[in-house]
Design a protein around this nucleic acid. Structure first.
Length: 277
DNA sequence: AGACATGTTGCTCA
DNA sequence: ATGAGCAACATGTC
């Protein structure tokens, strides 16, 4: 599930429940693959109890939770990861790989498909992998020129595949890429290098707009949402129609289509997104 | 039963 | 060297 806005939602959920609180105990699933190795799992279990959660940040699809004594806990949710908050005393279930217990809550990292990852870093500075994350879509460094240069370098790849490249489009995943292309009226198979200057500008603008809208809609609420993160997505977005068989484009009312592009199932509106040249 | 899933990496080939 | 395409990872669901 997690792309940029869902990641921010999950970060907030843990943060709001536990910032300022001290970890009293850590439960780790015996075959938790989310750790690089057994040693990493042991390190978490050994290092976190007694430390206080001081703050947290999300960037792209990564999260970093900062604890006292220069400890940083990095979390990536992979394909199916989620962070939950359960009452104190929660007993970990099958897919709960790591649970941080505090006096008031249990912070649960759950991930059925186990593509997620957790890593611990100790030191005064944020870990190197954190510093290497590309500048946010909403930052001044994400310029239309930078996008244009990147598309030139990936000229022959379908634009859909290029939007999924985290080194330039941090946090964009399959649904966001489809949403952006649909709003920009660009066909997912259009070679990146064949976009006209005006199209590149629209693409850049829609990247930022979808990022902003997704954050406001999915992550922008202070309370804990009920089970479904999607309940608040407007029907005017492609998002709500992309997996529906016989789904129709909210703008043209014409049928949507679904095919694999760049190795991922993509949904677009043929009436609106046409291949050219 | 079989296809497929909102992610990433590492391999092959051009 | 660099870019494009694809299998692999593990498990649940339709």
């Amino acid at each position: 599930m997690p792309e940029l806005a869902e990641v921010e939602f999950f970060r907030k959920r843990w943060h709001q429940a536990a910032v300022g609180q001290t970890v009293t105990d850590v439960s780790i699933h015996e075959r938790a693959r989310v750790f690089v190795n057994q040693r990493a799992a042991l390190a978490v279990r050994k290092a976190l109890p007694g430390r206080t959660l001081l703050g947290s940040e999300a960037a792209a699809k990564q999260m970093c939770f900062r604890f006292s004594d220069d400890l940083w806990l990095g979390v990536h949710l992979g394909m199916s990861g989620e962070l939950r908050v359960e009452p104190a005393g929660y007993v970990p279930q099958k897919h709960d790989h790591m649970v941080l217990h505090t006096a008031g809550h249990a912070l649960v990292f759950t991930d059925p498909r186990m593509f997620g990852g957790v890593e611990l870093h100790c030191g005064p500075e944020a870990p190197a992998w954190w510093a290497r994350i590309a500048p946010s879509l909403l930052s001044p460094a994400f310029t239309v020129e930078a996008v244009a240069a990147f598309l030139r370098r990936r000229a022959r790849a379908p634009i859909k595949a290029v939007l999924l490249m985290q080194e330039r489009f941090p946090g964009i995943g399959n649904w966001m890429a489809d949403e952006i292309l649909w709003r920009a009226a660009i066909h997912p198979r259009q070679p990146a290098g064949s976009l006209r200057a005006a199209e590149v500008r629209v693409l850049w603008r829609e990247c930022r707009r979808v990022c902003r809208l997704a954050l406001a809609t999915i992550a922008g609420r202070g309370d804990y949402l009920p089970t479904s993160l999607n309940a608040h997505i407007p029907a005017s977005w492609l998002f709500l129609h992309r997996w529906t068989d016989g789904g129709r484009c909210p703008k043209t009312r014409r049928p949507l289509c679904r095919e694999t592009v760049g190795g991922r199932t993509s949904c677009w509106s043929p009436a609106r997104q046409k291949l050219h040249r």
